[in-house]
Each structure stands twice: as C-alpha cells, then as structure tokens.
Amino acid sequence: MAHFKKKQAGTKQEVPTSAMPDVVFMLLFFFMVTTVLREVTLKVKIDLTKATNIEKIEEKRLVSYIYMGPERLPNNRLGNDKVQIDDSIVDDIGAIRQLMYDKLLQEQRMIVSLRVDESSEFGLLTDVQEELKKAQTFRINYSTKSEATRN
C-alpha cells in the first residue's frame, strides 16, 4: 500500500508513449499500401540479364508478367525452358494468345513485361512474341537489371 502511495505522490517520470501506436500505425499503413501481395510463386528459374539503356515502368497496374526460364524440378534440378503466366506453366504456346487477349480486354493499355532468364534461347522468346502479336498486345518490356553506364 505504501508503494502505491509513493507512485502517485512523485512527479511523472515516464516518457509519454501514448502517441507511439499512432506513429507505428502510420508506418504500418504506408507499408500495407506499398506492399504488393500478388507475388506469384515462380516455377521457373529467372536470372535477369543486365542492360544499360533501360527505363522504369511507372504504372505498375498496367504490367502483366510472362516468365520464361528453365523449369524448377524437385531436388534443385532444372528442366527445359518453360513459359509461366500467373501461377502456372503454359506448355502449349498457342494458348498464350487467348490468355493475353483476355488480359488485354481488362486493361487496354497493358504492358507485357517479359522476365526471361539470361540463358534462355531466343527461339522460345520469338514464339511467345508471335503469340503476343496475334493477341494484339504490342507493348512489351524486356525486364532487365540495371548496369552501370560505361561512358
């Protein structure tokens, strides 16, 4: 009881922490808004190549991704080059046309970002590009990492 009395009698020594939740919540909301949770699980291995003359895509909403690279197999082995759209591997290249066309209908200004493994062969890429042409999705972007400028 004596202890209790003493606490009330003394002057307040604590730092007021009542505003801390507000601060933390503010940060929380910031990260919640910026987080993109629609990250797909990659079923293909992708190491992006580097390029110097690149540009940023500002409007992330418009971007839809196509992944290309060697398929990840169990036991850390890698298979043949495959195409992945959304969460699944597309074995039939001809099916890409319909998939991408459906996406284009939802967003007319769609940009297709091609995330291709650096060792993938150009042949597969050109097949996919042919399908994209037929699907009328002409705006593409070869996703690359940035490289320090040489000059």
């Binding site: 690149i54 895509i57 970002s113 037929k134 009328q136 002409f138 705006r139």
Partner: peptide
C-alpha cells in the same frame, strides 16, 4: 521498380 527495355511489337 520494374526496369527494362521497352519495345512496341509490330502487328502480325
């Protein structure tokens, strides 16, 4: 931020 080389494909 997604960076890359932007291109426009020609119509088929």
């Amino acid at each position: 931020v997604d960076t890359g080389i932007g291109m426009v494909l020609p119509p088929p």
